[in-house]
Structures are given as structure tokens and as C-alpha cells.
């Protein structure tokens, strides 16, 4: 029996006296979408940050691909980071306004030392094509793209390091309905093709019902019956 891609046990996240996530547990398999659903302030995004170890949990365990992350140092985490990538809500805010799309997508490759000048540009073009952007968009800056195109660029960047897990924090909440449908279709296709696991944070029930295999309903940092 394979272990799950992500196994979160009794996760606790505190901000001073406030407990944002209170002993939350769930698992996520490769190729599966698990949604965290609940009102503003229920701890969805704090959970995302702790899973990505962008914030150290105050209690509980996070296992990713069978490895316990909780006590790893930043150096020990580094080889794991490419395997788990975030996509954020604000398509413009998550890309530097000064970088061309091409450079934003190439950046993870450069940071991880897998960039090389011969294959790199082709890999970036392939990634843009993969998310439905004409590679000529690589020359543009974020403000020259629509919200939906920008979000696609953000997804291309998340895919650059060949992750197994995408943590999608309200990835379609800022998009208009006609554009949102296209991005949801894209995420579905990518999951089918690449076997990605999605931790999908979303406050919109209709979208969650459409998109997620399973749902963890959250209130005040805890899982509650749906």
C-alpha cells in the first residue's frame, strides 16, 4: 500500500494568542483534489502556508512523499521544495511587475540550478504552451496580460520545477466566470496528464463541488462535518 502524497496530522498554527489551525488532519493522494472550504478566517490559507513550510507549524506533523517535514531545516527542505509549489489568488500580485513572463517562468529553474542556456528557453516555451499561452506572451510583462492569462503564467511557473503537489490558494477567485471556466479546465487537464495532487483552497461551494474529489469543511481552524 502506497503512502499518501501528503499526510497532515493534528496540524496547529498559532499567531500569538490566536489559534488559526487547531489539530487539523487530512491526507491527499497523487492525482487527487482535496478542497479546503470555509468562510474567511477559518484557517484555510494558514494550513496552506504550513503545508508548504512557508510557516513552521506550532504542532502536529506534515508528511510529504513519505517524509516528515516538520523538523527539517531550511537546507534539508531545499531539495523537496521544487516538488510542492503554490499558486496564489491574485494573478498580478504573484508575478513581479518588472519581470517578463518568460523570466518569471524560468526563475524556478535558475534558482534550483537546472537552467541551462541551450534547453532552458525551449522548456519555458513548452511550459507556456502547456498552460495555453502562446509562447510569444513570454516577452510581455504581467500588466500586458489579462487576469486569466496571468494566472496561467503563474501555473506555468509552478509547473517549471516538475512538482507532484500544487497548493492552489483561491486560484480562480479573482477571475471572471467566463475566464474561470478555462482555468479550471486547464487544471483538470494538467492533473490528468501529470498525476498532480491538488490541495485546493476555495470559498466558493459551487466551484468546490465541481472540482474537488473530497472536501474538508473548516470552521475556526477545525474540520467540521460538511
Amino acid at each position: 500500500m502506497n503512502s499518501p502524497l501528503l499526510d497532515v496530522r493534528d496540524l496547529v498554527v498559532r499567531y500569538g494568542p490566536v489559534t488559526a489551525v487547531d489539530r487539523l488532519s487530512f491526507t491527499l493522494d497523487a492525482g487527487e483534489t482535496l478542497a479546503l472550504n470555509g468562510p474567511s478566517g477559518c484557517g484555510k490559507s494558514s494550513t496552506a502556508l504550513a503545508v508548504l513550510r512557508l510557516r513552521r507549524p506550532d504542532g502536529g506533523k506534515v508528511r510529504f512523499e513519505g517524509r516528515e517535514l516538520t523538523n527539517l531545516t531550511e537546507r534539508e527542505l531545499r531539495p523537496l521544495r521544487p516538488r510542492m509549489q503554490p499558486v496564489f489568488q491574485d494573478p498580478y500580485g504573484s508575478l513581479s511587475p518588472r519581470h517578463r513572463i518568460r523570466d518569471a517562468v524560468a526563475e524556478p529553474l535558475k534558482v534550483q540550478g537546472t537552467w541551462n542556456r541551450t534547453d532552458g528557453p525551449a522548456r519555458v516555451a513548452e511550459l507556456l504552451d502547456r498552460v495555453g499561452l502562446d509562447p510569444s506572451y513570454g516577452d510581455r510583462r504581467p500588466h500586458e496580460l489579462s487576469g486569466g492569462q496571468c494566472q496561467r503564467a503563474g501555473i506555468a511557473r509552478a509547473l517549471a520545477s516538475r512538482p507532484q503537489l500544487l497548493v492552489l490558494d483561491e486560484p480562480v477567485s479573482a477571475l471572471d466566470a467566463s475566464v474561470r471556466a478555462g482555468v479550471l479546465n486547464l487544471l483538470s487537464d494538467l492533473q490528468d496528464d501529470l498525476g498532480l495532487g491538488y490541495l485546493f483552497i476555495c470559498h466558493d461551494r459551487a466551484v468546490v463541488r465541481h472540482f474537488a474529489d473530497r472536501v474538508v469543511e473548516m470552521r475556526d481552524g477545525r474540520a467540521v462535518p460538511a
Partner: peptide
């Protein structure tokens, strides 16, 4: 048509091509 609604999970949503 582009709104997610009850139906088979992850059926393809009829997205409008392009942008306004």
C-alpha cells in the same frame, strides 16, 4: 454555461474562448 454546476465532477466547463 461557464458556471460550475451540479453534474458529473470535473466535466469540461464550456469556457468562452478569449477575453473581453
Amino acid at each position: 454555461a461557464s458556471l460550475p454546476q451540479d453534474g458529473p465532477r470535473r466535466h469540461r466547463l464550456p469556457a468562452l474562448p478569449g477575453t473581453p
